[in-house]
Design a binder for these strands. Structure first.
Lengths: 151, 151
DNA sequence: TATTGTTATACTCTATAACTATA
DNA sequence: TATAGTTATAGAGTATAACAATA
């Protein structure tokens, strides 16, 4: 395997940047839609999203509402739904007794894993069909897109 | 500007394909979420989606329901909302009098244009900040991703 | 009798306003 | 008095079931 690291490129003109941005945006949105469509049976989108926020550590409903940009009452409802499904547990705060801490259950971690597996499976099949050169391009692209998304 | 077209790459191993697929999927979904967040003020997602389907030609509620994968009554509601907003017009069918044809108004075309402009603007700024080499990678990637999404 | 579209009704997710408990 | 969270209530969007008009 060889790789040419000295190749140089000219900066794109503004009109070319716009065209690229438009194409790239559409492609990302189409893929996103297809992937979501493959895995909406196990768990509702807003439940999935909140569960992802709880993976690292428990959080309060207030924190979750702010992160997810929904109102506090909406998050109360969402958390109540997750409790009913057995995916989170609520623990009263110790130092500040007004607070509540919401934490994932083991069941939730299984569902998260399975949902991600389904989503990745769709993508893996398609990426696996590509030429090695195309795979190499996407490898670099995924790094750049991640950087862009986190900007 | 030079470009090396003879560089060769080894096919990725299955585990590397999975890793790439996962990263790429996440990156696309994050970008999609950010872009949508930038342009949800002008029009609701399901309205936007239906309006896009009507750009080429008018359609019946039944066709729209099937394309959008929602129930017929839901589409009746959505179309009613779009009529109220002044974005579509309903015309009774001539040959089959049970049918109804839904068509975009000029106002709708303006809103579609503006919404796309907003979405592309977010992406353009970020793509414009990248190195020429990174832009070149994304140019190739957008072609590949479009192919993948349409598969 | 089958099909196109609508209306009736109910469930979910969202929001704002009002309330309880604690700081 | 301010804050964390919940409850009360209402507004969208979705669905299934039942209905009207037409084929």
């Amino acid at each position: 395997m060889t790789a040419d690291t000295t190749t140089s490129y000219a900066a794109l003109r503004p009109s070319a940047v716009s065209a690229l941005a438009g194409e790239l945006r559409l492609a990302c949105m189409r893929i996103s839609r297809r992937v979501r469509y493959e895995s909406t049976d196990l768990i509702a989108p807003h439940h999935f999203s909140v569960m992802c926020r709880l993976e690292e550590s428990p959080r309060t409903p207030g924190e979750l509402a702010e992160i997810e940009r929904v109102s506090a009452p909406s998050m109360t409802r969402t958390v109540a739904g997750l409790v009913e499904l057995g995916y989170v547990e609520r623990t009263p705060g110790t130092t500040d007794k007004r607070q509540v801490f919401v934490a994932l259950t083991d069941d939730a971690r299984k569902v998260l894993k399975e949902t991600r597996r389904k989503r990745d499976a769709w993508m893996s099949v398609r990426v696996g069909h590509l030429d090695p050169e195309e795979q190499a391009v996407l490898l670099r692209a995924s790094e750049i897109l991640t950087k862009v998304a986190n900007e």
